[in-house]
Design a protein around this nucleic acid. Sequence first.
DNA 1: GTCATTGCAAAACGTTTGCATGAAT
DNA 2: ATTCATGCAAACGTTTTGCAATGAC
Lengths: 138, 138
Amino acid sequence: MKTLKYSRQRESIKACLMNRHDHPTADALYASIREEYPNISLGTVYRNLNLLVETGEIQRLTCGDGADHFDGNPRPHYHFMCRECKQVYDVPMETMEALNTAAQEFAPGVVDGHSVLFLGECNDCLAKHADHKIHKSA
Amino acid sequence: MKTLKYSRQRESIKACLMNRHDHPTADALYASIREEYPNISLGTVYRNLNLLVETGEIQRLTCGDGADHFDGNPRPHYHFMCRECKQVYDVPMETMEALNTAAQEFAPGVVDGHSVLFLGECNDCLAKHADHKIHKSA
DNA sequence: GTCATTGCAAAACGTTTGCATGAAT
DNA sequence: ATTCATGCAAACGTTTTGCAATGAC
């Protein structure tokens, strides 16, 4: 349990991420933020992205292209990344069940079995996962 | 188009991966191989893992825990990784459709929307993805 | 005054690459 | 003889960390 203090840098990072529809990497976000805060450091961007992920305000996307991507939309939804052009698309929850059929038009490669990765949490760990909250005071 | 020559190191890496049921990282595999080939270098392990992925003999798994994992089973199937203990489990193809229900017992967290990542290939890229084969001569 | 946050630079980590040597064809 | 593969070490890109200074409470 940790108390967060307000920081204009963190607010800026969050605001910037919410305004974007792409799913930028830390570095891409850093470049954007720099326009408003030329002195911000890359370390600060990483630190705050990690904090925002911990509080559940944003999502981290590990797509396998080297750098993690971030999503300002914390609501449950899926993602699809093109192996070739590396673009990341949102896939709404409702598409989950219909994916096997929907994917035929949307992206034939999506459910070929080689291209899907599930991340989750097993029963044992879910159990002892009771108190991982961070208090926010801003 | 590239021709591969036989190498006992590559065979050993492949054999070692097929015999394991876990999904080791390059480094973990390196440690195993070293017992048989004490002089093998980490670079060689990485180079051969990349080759084997390209020829489709093994699979690379990017799970978001820092290092890529590798799977000696090239047949289409899904994977599930526990966010806490980092273990990677196989999830058979048939489970895909039944996952939303099956997951309730197997791993309640698996289909919560935050925990799933789809990797695939969009129509455009699938089109120009004609000739990416590597000829193997061994 | 206390403790979180910052900027900076250095380090850490996984992975790739350049190069001279060695092995396969 | 040719060309691919190896071992080694250096370099790379991403992310984390130590530290002294600054800012929030």
